[in-house]
């Protein structure tokens, strides 16, 4: 085989491999994930109901704006009833989001720290009568009417089935991967779609809590502003806010990045900085070696992005 044909063949192979994931994403409908009531005694209470961005408000009480900020696309709501008893039911909600980050965002916003972990999709949990999981653009949430083993068994099964039917390898979004893993408090990581920590100029980002030693905990955050000038502008506005409502106490540098140390009126002591297209920071602690280690690792992780 000539070099020319080898190169051409490689090109088409790469193109084919690159589109495998996309095709897989498109190869199913959300409705395909709805499990049948395939065990004796169980039946669907009624036909599944579908909701879209226009009608989400019909279903979610107060939470619709947050779901929309995570890129909500579609919801299918199904209820399974056991032996015709309307008080013994399991409700399953399948959410299609615009991106894996949005699916992770919804998932992580409601995940209790005390939940038990399950090997469902990228991640799953059950806490009492509530269970949830996510994979790809899909977020799956279920609830049982009561803590009855029969109901919980079905709850676990429909969640595992639904998220297991999502094509593609389970993978955490890169914004979560850049968070240092050492000393991170389990299940404390989360993504918010807008108004990070109450600031309209921070478009959203990931947060996680860390043990900083001697009982201290810190809240680490990363907000992606897409471009360095936008990050600079957001940083300036955060500095302006802290100067007005909080107290600026000093500055230092880590990995060539200048940190501003402040006392935020709501979040306590902490530091923040602009790094490339990101605004990053940590709340809940003064300048300590543990904080510096954490921020250094975060900046290094971000250098590859």
């Amino acid at each position: 085989m000539s070099l020319r044909w080898l190169i051409a063949g490689s090109f088409w192979l790469i193109l084919a491999l690159d589109t495998v994931g996309q095709d897989a994403d498109r190869a199913f409908e959300l409705a395909d994930l709805v499990p049948d009531a395939d065990r004796s005694g169980w039946e669907m209470a009624e036909e599944s109901a579908e909701y879209f961005p226009e009608s989400l408000y019909e279903y979610l009480n107060g939470g619709a704006p947050q779901y929309l900020s995570f890129g909500f696309q579609k919801l299918i709501n199904t209820r399974y009833v056991y032996q015709g008893d309307d008080l013994r039911s399991v409700t399953l909600d399948l959410f299609e989001m615009q991106s894996p980050l949005g699916a992770y965002g919804i998932y992580s916003s409601g995940r209790p720290r005390t939940a038990s972990v399950h090997d469902w999709g990228v991640e799953g949990y059950r806490s009492g009568t509530i269970a949830a999981a996510w994979n790809g653009n899909e977020y799956v949430h279920g609830s049982a009417d009561e803590n009855d083993p029969v109901l919980i068994e079905l709850l676990d099964r429909v969640i595992a089935h639904a998220v297991g039917a999502v094509p593609g390898e389970p993978q955490m979004p890169w914004m979560v991967k850049v968070l240092p893993s050492a000393d991170r408090i389990p299940f404390s990581d989360r993504y918010v779609g807008k108004d990070l920590l109450g600031h309209s100029f921070l478009p959203g980002g990931v947060l996680a809590e860390y043990n900083l030693g001697e009982g201290a905990e810190g809240l680490l955050f990363v907000s992606d502003l897409i471009a360095p000038p936008k990050a600079k502008k957001a940083f300036d506005r955060l500095f302006e806010y802290e100067s007005e409502r909080g107290k600026v106490v000093g500055q230092s540098a880590i990995e060539g990045t200048r940190l501003r140390w402040v006392e935020d009126p709501g979040l306590g002591q902490g530091a923040f900085a602009q790094f490339d297209r990101f605004v990053i920071g940590l709340w809940g602690s003064p300048d300590t070696p543990a904080v510096r280690t954490l921020l250094t690792e975060l900046i290094r992780n971000l250098q590859g992005e």
Binding site: D195, L197, G266, L267
Partner: peptide, 25 residues
């Protein structure tokens, strides 16, 4: 209304603006 809210200072600012009813769940 407190759905999606996680910075206590936001509520303080709301109280400073005269809000006295806090709706949560």
């Amino acid at each position: 209304g407190t759905y999606g809210f996680d910075n206590p200072e936001l509520l303080r600012a709301g109280l400073d603006a005269g809000i006295n009813l806090i709706c949560t769940c």
